[in-house]
Each structure stands twice: as structure tokens, then as C-alpha cells.
């Protein structure tokens, strides 16, 4: 029941999202929905993996790094999912342009702040990839 409620809420949020001209568009509403569903599934997948590895209580080398990767990539998904959603509500007037390029962004609310942070998603993605790299290197060294 809880699962059904959460899924319904997620679908409504996705369907209500509006286009954000300042960020990468995903082919209109349909593209954005598909992308957001992808993010959701990505998160579900990562959460599932995280739970699975957590339950398996791996202590061998590489598994802590892999867990860290899962956490970071899950957070990245959450952040970018939020960024995609909030971008639909960002007004073009919030950007200050110069010679056709954005040079500043006006933050009116916490949602604007979250949007701005979502534009810095590499700060989560890079650690995630780095931990994945570490995990794989540990496993490789174990042969």
C-alpha cells in the first residue's frame, strides 16, 4: 500500500514538471518524464543494491567502496532528479545574461537554492565514480 502511494506521488510530481530553459531539456514533457522515470528506476536500482549489499554485510576489500559508490550515486540521482523537477519552475528572469550567456542566478527561495546546487551535481557524481573505481581496483588486486 505504501509502495502504491509513493509511486502515485512520484508520478504526479513528474507529470506536473514544467520545462526549464536554463538547463538541458529532455525532449519536452514526454522526454522529461521518461528521463525522470529513468532517474527513479536508477535510484530504485541503487537503493536495492545498497540494501542488498548492506544485508549481506560484506567486509571483504572493495565492498565498502562499492557501498560508498552506491550512496553517492543514489544521492546524485536524488539531486539531479530534484534539479530536473525544479528547473521547470525557474523563471528566465532569474538568470542574468551577458552576451547571450548566463552570468548570475537570482535565488528567491530554498527551491531556487536546491536548483542551483543541482547544477553542481558533479560534486556527487565524481566521488561516486571514484569510489566505484576504488572498489573495482580493490577487487582486481585481489584477483
Amino acid at each position: 500500500m505504501k509502495r502504491i502511494s509513493a509511486l502515485t506521488t512520484l508520478c504526479l510530481a513528474v507529470l506536473q514538471a514544467a520545462p526549464a530553459l536554463a538547463v538541458q531539456h529532455h525532449g519536452g514533457t514526454e522526454g522529461l518524464v521518461a528521463h525522470q522515470i529513468g532517474h527513479l528506476l536508477f535510484m530504485v536500482g541503487m537503493a536495492y543494491l545498497l540494501i542488498s549489499t548492506w544485508c549481506e554485510r560484506h567486509s571483504a576489500p572493495g565492498w565498502p567502496q562499492f557501498t560508498a559508490f552506491l550512496i553517492f550515486i543514489l544521492l546524485w540521482n536524488l539531486l539531479t532528479f530534484s534539479g530536473h523537477w525544479l528547473a521547470e519552475y525557474i523563471l528566465p528572469s532569474q538568470f542574468q545574461n551577458h552576451a547571450g550567456h548566463h552570468i548570475a542566478f537570482t535565488i528567491h527561495s530554498s527551491a531556487d537554492m536546491l536548483f542551483y546546487l543541482s547544477r553542481l551535481d558533479h560534486l556527487l557524481l565524481l566521488p561516486a565514480l571514484y569510489f566505484l573505481f576504488l572498489a573495482l581496483r580493490k577487487w582486481r588486486r585481489q584477483l
Binding site: 529532455h26 521518461a34 528506476l41 536508477f42 530504485v44
Partner: peptide, 24 residues
């Protein structure tokens, strides 16, 4: 180009999801 890039990225999400489900 943006739709193609987004589509590929989206597709990889599904693939990753699928792989995740098969982990167990």
C-alpha cells in the same frame, strides 16, 4: 543534439536499473 544525449542517458538508467534488479 540534446534529445539524443538525454535519450542515451535515460536508456542507460533503465539498463542500470535492470542490472540492479538482477544483482541478487
Amino acid at each position: 543534439l540534446s534529445p539524443f544525449s538525454g535519450a542515451i542517458t535515460t536508456a542507460t538508467f533503465f539498463i542500470i536499473f535492470a542490472f540492479s534488479l538482477y544483482y541478487q
